[in-house]
Simulated assay, not measured.
Amino acid sequence: MSTDRPIVLFDLFGVIARHQRPGAMDAMALLSGGAPADAFDAAYWACRLPYDAGQFSAAEYWTAVLHQLSLPAHPDTVEQLRLADIDSWSRVDERMVAYAQSLREVAEVALLSNIPADHADAFLAAQPWLHDLDHVAFSGKIHAAKPDPAAFRHCVIALKADPADFLFVDDREENVRAARALGMSGHVFTGHAELAAALDAWLPTR
């Protein structure tokens, strides 16, 4: 049962922040010691979930990636890759940042993002607006990554709310399905105008 508290729960990348910087994967492949770009891409994603979910440290993640590529995991290489990776995910959509902030006049606004802990620290330092939200949940910090129901339950508990109070916004349909399965409303993000229309329809029901 809803407590009539409207809470908009945003994904970060692909909604408020931009996806990975174009060309970043090729640049990191070169930093790795010359791995082919397609092999690097495959290893990068194959090892990613434990890193996102806080089960791997940055050093453990990059060591796993390099070992999968049969490359040595020198500490300097690991650190160069870590910093390049953080930079590749550092861009935000300023229009969406402003829109999310404006919603705090009519709703609580929170964030749930799949992001490693060290990336989260860098993002928090670079984006002070995050500190003004009602709650921020990073997968690497809460040890649960979407679409794991535990990630959504964390937000419900942290905000002392009911799932029915939430509208979850994400650009990945599987994550929206997981939120709906828990009892939240959900919106698959395709753009600002579509989201604004969905929120205009949802808010009067709270």
Rank of each mutant, 00 (worst) to 15 (best):
Met1His: 14
Gly14Glu: 03
Gly14Gln: 03
Val15Glu: 02
Ile16Thr: 08
Ala17Ile: 08
Arg18Ala: 14
Pro22Tyr: 09
Pro22Asp: 07
Met28Gly: 12
Ala35Asn: 02
Ala35Arg: 01
Ala37Asp: 04
Asp38Gln: 09
Ala39Gly: 00
Trp45His: 13
Cys47Asn: 09
Arg48Glu: 15
Asp52Ile: 08
Gly54Leu: 11
Phe56Trp: 07
Ala59Glu: 06
Ala73His: 12
His74Gln: 14
His74Phe: 12
His74Lys: 10
Asp76Ala: 06
Leu81Gly: 02
Leu83Gln: 08
Leu83Cys: 06
Ala84Cys: 04
Ala84Trp: 15
Ile86Arg: 15
Asp87Met: 07
Trp89Ile: 12
Arg91Ala: 15
Asp93Thr: 13
Asp93Arg: 03
Ala98Asn: 07
Ala98His: 08
Tyr99Trp: 14
Ala100Val: 05
Leu103Asp: 00
Arg104Phe: 13
Val106Asn: 02
Glu108Phe: 06
Leu111Val: 15
Asp118Thr: 11
Asp121Gln: 09
Asp121Lys: 13
Ala126Lys: 15
Gln127Thr: 09
Leu133Gly: 00
His143Ile: 07
His143Thr: 14
Ala145Asp: 10
Leu167Ser: 03
Asp171Cys: 02
Glu174Phe: 03
Ala178Ile: 10
Gly183Gln: 11
Ser185Cys: 08
Ser185Asp: 15
Gly186Thr: 14
Phe189Pro: 02
Thr190Gln: 12
Thr190Met: 12
His192Thr: 13
Leu195Arg: 05
Ala197Tyr: 06
Asp200Gly: 00
